Computed example of a mutant assay.
Amino acid sequence: MADDKPCLSRREVRRNDRRDAIVAIAQAYFLDHGYAATTMSGIAGTMGGSKATLWSYFPSKEALFEAVIDRATTLFRQRLTPLLDPDGDFESGLRGFMLRFLEKLTQAESVALHRLVHAESGRFHEVGRIFYDRGPRTIVHLAGAFIGRAMDRGTLRRDDPVWAARTLIAIGMAGSHQQLLLGLVDVVTPEMIAADADAAIDTFMRLYAPAERPA
């Protein structure tokens, strides 16, 4: 069977590679300097190219920041999706999701990105919007779809599955991740992440437990 995927020309491959390199440089630059202090000229200088070259890939700093967030979240979503197997055990799938989610969120790069967004979104609303649309919103809807199917099967009581997903994630982020953001701890261990995941799932399952049927 022939492969339906279009074959890219060498020029297109080089352009895609160049774009990926620009986004990687921009991500490091945004995290080091913040959104306000980042300029297209500064990124062009760091990558060793002209500003015209940079503008040929990205028409604005906002578009470049959006690409940075896409880069940071796309692969993460792809790794989370297989964990939410609708035919598998619900609690095991949910625990695997929470463990991987919290592992990612407590990495130094993720903590730095969250700090940047919280620091800059008050002055630059596009920062908060782009981050929310590409990150938290997509993860919540991914988990919400999984939770909604469990509600359909009666594993959980019926409620808004997206709100239930927000509740689960908020509980999970209230532990080690919050302490990292506030500088209360410098290192999070696998044991701390596992404890946060277990506590979040235990609370969630009790909160959304199906009502007992009368005898």
Rank of each mutant, 00 (worst) to 15 (best):
Y132G: 08
G175I: 03
F90V: 12
D70M: 10
A174R: 09
G93A: 11
M98A: 13
P82K: 12
R100T: 14
S56D: 12
G128H: 04
F97V: 08
R71D: 08
L182T: 13
A197T: 06
G122N: 13
Q179V: 03
V117G: 02
A164C: 11
E191V: 13
W163T: 15
T74Y: 08
G172S: 10
R149G: 04
I201S: 03
P190W: 07
D89N: 15
E126C: 09
P86A: 09
S121G: 05
D152T: 14
S60V: 12
H114M: 13
K104G: 03
E191P: 01
K61L: 12
W55F: 15
P86G: 08
L142H: 06
A63F: 08
L80H: 07
E109R: 13
L94K: 01
E109Y: 06
A170W: 09
A143W: 00
A72K: 10
G128Q: 05
T167W: 05
E62G: 05
I139G: 00
G172V: 00
G172T: 03
T74E: 13
A194V: 04
G154I: 10
L182C: 11
R115P: 02
R137M: 15
R134E: 10
A67F: 02
G93I: 04
T155M: 08
Q178L: 15
I193R: 00
E120L: 06
L116V: 07
D152I: 14
F101S: 00
G96E: 05
G88M: 11
R79P: 00
V111W: 02
R129I: 10
A165L: 05
P59V: 10
H141Y: 12
V140G: 00
R123Y: 10
I193Y: 01
A164Y: 00
T189K: 10
E126G: 04
L105C: 06
G96S: 12
L94H: 01
H125K: 15
Q178A: 15
P86D: 11
F131I: 05
D159K: 08
A63N: 10
S110Q: 15
G93D: 04
G172I: 01
A194N: 07
R100G: 04
Y132F: 15
D196V: 07
Y57I: 08
S92R: 15
D85Q: 12
R149W: 02
R166W: 09
P190C: 10
G154P: 06
F97A: 03
L156C: 02
R95S: 06
A174V: 05
L84A: 04
R115F: 04
